[in-house]
């Protein structure tokens, strides 16, 4: 197994390089670059002097050097831990990412736990009570959850929260706390804001996991070994949770990586709508402004997360299922 994991990690390096190439090409495809956009914006605000500084800025950012040179410098520095600087606020990319990462992780982890924690039991209930009113209700709920884009859901929640409390729960902290150091009050304030986005994203996630769980459970419940288990006189609880559920978990585990990208997707647009200080919002801004090192680093980070997620799900699969062997 350790050999297998090492192998998988090694394969990730070329994939990562390819992702970096693609990311770089995407950033470089437009005729404009960060400086030309910046100059345009400044000029629009009446700051015409900036036009003369264009070349100096390019020089400073290394944007005037040949493309391959820019790329190799980026990649080499990247693997040495230097992610470059953000053009738009002139701070190191790593600093900006570290600023945004904790909130992103907390919100994502919350949504992740909620989706699995609620989705799985509901899915099992739905499958073991197939066609009961409860199952039909949950199925309807799941289809709405899957059909309704999570950003719209976030918006609708936002409106209801506003109507109920009179507060616009945008962002993850109230104004007075934004630049405050960590404190209990800030944490509570964070929670009072975060539930909204977490619920919105987790709603879709829960629906998705519930559906998958239900389908898997129904498929497993139809298999002959279930009859054997019942014929052995095992209590129904043991049949369902020890055996059927563990078998049904198998395809769910393969989904682990998918659920990660699901969350990244979910929070991408929800964050923008709700103005959450997550890494996805930064990513969108950076992409639009062609702040290439920032956008590139986040793209790589996201891709690595998904790859690691897939690796974890494969390892978990081997651990759960004696038939799976990686050598």
């Amino acid at each position: 197994m350790p050999i297998y994991i090492a192998k998988r990690l090694l394969i990730m390096v070329p994939t990562l390089l390819m992702i970096m190439v693609v990311g770089f090409i995407i950033m470089k495809l437009p005729a404009s670059d960060f400086v030309s956009q910046y100059v345009l914006r400044q000029a629009a605000q009446g700051n015409t002097g900036i036009v003369a500084q264009q070349d100096m800025l390019r020089e400073q950012f290394g944007l005037n050097r040949p493309l391959y040179e820019q790329f190799f410098t980026w990649v080499v520095n990247f693997f040495r831990g230097d992610l470059g600087i953000s053009f738009s606020d002139l701070r190191p990319v790593s600093t900006i990412i570290m600023e945004r990462l904790p909130a992103t992780l907390v919100v994502s982890a919350m949504a992740f736990i909620v989706s699995w924690g609620i989705g799985i039991p509901l899915g099992v209930y739905s499958a073991t009570h197939q066609y009961s009113p409860g199952d039909i209700g949950l199925t309807a709920f799941a289809f709405i959850g899957i059909g309704l884009p999570d950003f719209l859901l976030a918006l609708i929640f936002l409106v209801f929260a506003f109507l109920a409390t009179g507060d616009v729960l945008l962002g993850l902290n109230s104004m007075q706390y934004v630049n405050q150091p960590f404190s209990l009050a800030k944490a509570l304030d964070f929670l009072s804001h975060a539930w909204l986005s977490v619920t919105a994203v987790a709603f879709t996630g829960t629906a998705f996991i519930m559906r998958v769980t239900r389908n898997n459970m129904l498929e497993e419940l139809g298999k002959p070994y279930v009859m054997t288990l019942r014929a052995k006189g095992l209590p129904e609880k043991v049949v369902i949770w020890k055996h059927v559920f563990r078998n049904a978990l198998h395809p769910l585990v393969t989904l682990f990586g998918q659920v990660l990208s699901f969350l990244i997707n979910g929070f991408a647009i929800t964050s923008i709508v709700l103005n959450l200080p997550t890494i996805q919002t930064t990513y969108l801004q950076a992409t639009i402004q062609q702040d290439m090192y920032l956008a590139g680093a986040i793209l790589v980070l996201i891709a690595v997360t998904v790859m690691v997620g897939n690796l974890i799900s494969d390892v978990m699969l081997a651990w759960l299922d004696p038939r799976v062997r990686y050598d």
């Binding site: 298999k223 002959p224 070994y225 054997t228 288990l229 014929a231 055996h243 078998n247 299922d321």
Partner: peptide, 11 residues
């Protein structure tokens, strides 16, 4: 049962 293949929980 008839099917010794599928009549056991594989896990």
């Amino acid at each position: 049962f008839q099917e010794p293949m599928t009549s056991f929980d594989p896990l």
